[in-house]
Each structure stands twice: as structure tokens, then as C-alpha cells.
């Protein structure tokens, strides 16, 4: 662990969130971690209460969906994992993946209100047509109980354009590359933590629909022509909306409505 890595400082993050906050009641900052999700998973196994946050300046084994590598160099971006223990059935817990993307967009827009940041289903952080951040959520399920959910956030903040990863499914970008503005990572991390708490409490108090409604207001893909790819399946159609669990509803080319549970979504043209 370390106290500070350039503009990323544990004390600064703590000073920007409430002392009685649920999310961020414990914050650990690492100069280098294999994966913040893995550290958070260990906290879960060690019975750490929910709300613990792990942040790293760099990751050596940052990962995305299906073990894809998440490029995680030092002094540029935010790699952060949040430990939650949602008291809900695993079926309903999927909406947490939407919640994290809402928190990131709200936090970014607090600092850069005019930035064209939006969400692509389920939780890619987009700026224009490029991906600036991703969220990998991992849960451990015992029977019909979620023992813990780890929300892993990777957000390209101050990554120069020439260092952006090239071999990605969706073109990558960073806030710096899009705005020529370098942000203070402590400030942005604290804002994400605060927004995550607000959204998490909304989920607990008002249920999934309240979260889904906010998500819909922050996504530009509803009404758009999209393709969804997973394994050998490719579905083309119009994104119609989300169902009550947050799953994507697509009207295919012959007018049938289909509910997508997982897959890589590409926006062909905005509606």
C-alpha cells in the first residue's frame, strides 16, 4: 500500500467523502496491484464489511470480461474496486452493473458538465463513439445468496492519445484525449465513490426501476441500430429498452423482440 501516487492520494480521497459514508468507509491505495478486484475479493473472504474501496495507481493483471486484459499503466488512470454485500437474490443483483456506470458518468459530468459521456449497455463508459471506461462486476454466490459483489472500475483519465490501446473491440479513448484536460484523479475517484453510494442507496430504497430509469436517461443507444455478438450468435436490430432486470431488449430485423443477457454490443447508427 502507499499513501500517494502523484495526484492519486488516499488522504485526499478520504477528505472529499463524508466520514460516515457507507462506500469508502475503508480505502486502500496501492502503487501497483495485480488486480484491484482480486484484492477486494480477499477482503470479501476476510469478512470485511461492505463499502471497502481498493484503488491502484497501476495494475499488472487488470482484466475485463472473459479474462480480457485491461491495460493499466501507472500515473494515468483510475483502477478501483468496491466491495458490496447486497442483500438480494442473485437474479436481482445484475442491476448493480448498471449502477456503477451511472456513478461514473455522473462523477465525470460533475467535473466536465459538457462532455459527451454516455453509457453503452450494460456498462461501458463512452465518450462519443469511443470507450473510456469499463466495469467488471464479480459476485460470489452461495446457494441463493450473494455473499459479496465486487464492482471493478477501469477509467481512462489522463492517458495520452498515443498510449491508448489499439487492439480493442471498441476504439479506446481517455478523458484527456477527448478534452485535452488533465483531471485530478483523487477528486474524480472521490466523486465516483460518492455517486456509487447515492445510487446504491437508491437501489436499496427504491428498487431496480429507479436505477434503470436513470440509466436510460444516460444512454444514447435506445432507438439505435445495434449488433450484439456472443460466441457464434450475432443479432442485429434496434435497441428498444431494458426489461425490469436491466436486460437489453432488441427488436430484430423481422420485428421480433429479444432479450439479451450477455454479449458485446456495437452501435451501428444512433437513433
Amino acid at each position: 500500500m502507499c499513501a500517494a501516487c502523484g495526484d492519486l492520494a488516499e488522504d485526499t480521497v478520504k477528505s472529499l467523502i463524508s466520514s460516515d459514508a457507507l462506500i469508502g468507509n475503508s480505502i486502500e491505495l496501492y502503487s501497483t496491484a495485480a488486480s484491484t478486484n482480486d484484492i477486494c475479493l480477499n477482503l470479501c473472504r476476510n469478512q470485511m464489511p461492505e463499502g471497502a474501496v481498493v484503488i491502484a495507481d497501476a495494475q499488472t493483471e487488470g482484466r475485463g470480461r472473459l479474462g480480457r486484459k485491461w491495460i493499466s499503466p501507472p500515473e494515468q488512470n483510475i483502477y478501483m474496486s468496491i466491495l458490496l454485500r447486497p442483500d438480494m437474490h442473485p437474479k436481482s443483483a445484475s442491476v448493480i452493473t448498471l449502477l456503477a456506470s451511472i456513478a461514473c458518468i455522473k462523477a465525470i459530468k460533475l467535473i466536465l458538465p459538457n462532455l459527451e459521456a454516455h453509457i453503452k449497455w450494460p456498462n461501458d463508459i463512452m465518450i462519443g463513439h469511443k470507450k473510456a471506461g469499463g466495469i467488471l462486476t464479480e459476485s460470489r454466490i452461495e446457494g441463493t445468496k450473494v455473499s459479496c459483489t465486487i464492482v471493478g472500475i477501469g477509467l481512462n483519465v489522463n492517458m495520452p492519445e498515443q498510449l491508448l490501446p489499439r487492439e480493442t473491440i471498441i476504439p479506446a479513448t481517455s478523458i484527456l484525449a477527448e478534452t485535452e484536460t488533465a483531471l485530478n484523479r483523487s477528486e474524480l475517484a472521490a466523486a465516483i465513490i460518492k455517486e456509487t453510494e447515492e445510487c446504491y442507496l437508491l437501489l436499496k430504497n427504491k428498487g431496480s426501476k429507479a436505477v434503470i430509469d436513470i440509466w436510460l436517461s444516460m444512454s444514447k443507444m435506445i432507438g439505435s441500430q445495434i449488433t450484439v455478438t456472443s460466441n457464434e450468435d450475432i443479432i442485429s436490430g434496434i435497441a428498444e429498452g431494458l426489461d425490469e432486470d436491466g436486460m437489453l431488449i432488441v427488436r430484430d430485423q423481422i420485428g421480433l423482440l429479444k432479450t439479451i443477457i450477455s454479449g458485446d454490443v456495437r452501435i451501428v447508427s444512433h437513433g
Binding site: A93, T97, N123, S139, R140, I141, M247
Partner: peptide
């Protein structure tokens, strides 16, 4: 996996 939430199913 559902919606990019990877649910690890533990044995009871």
C-alpha cells in the same frame, strides 16, 4: 454471466 456480472457459483 448476466449483463457483464460474472457470478461465481460456490459449492455448498
Amino acid at each position: 454471466e448476466a449483463m457483464k456480472l460474472m457470478n461465481e457459483i460456490e459449492s455448498e
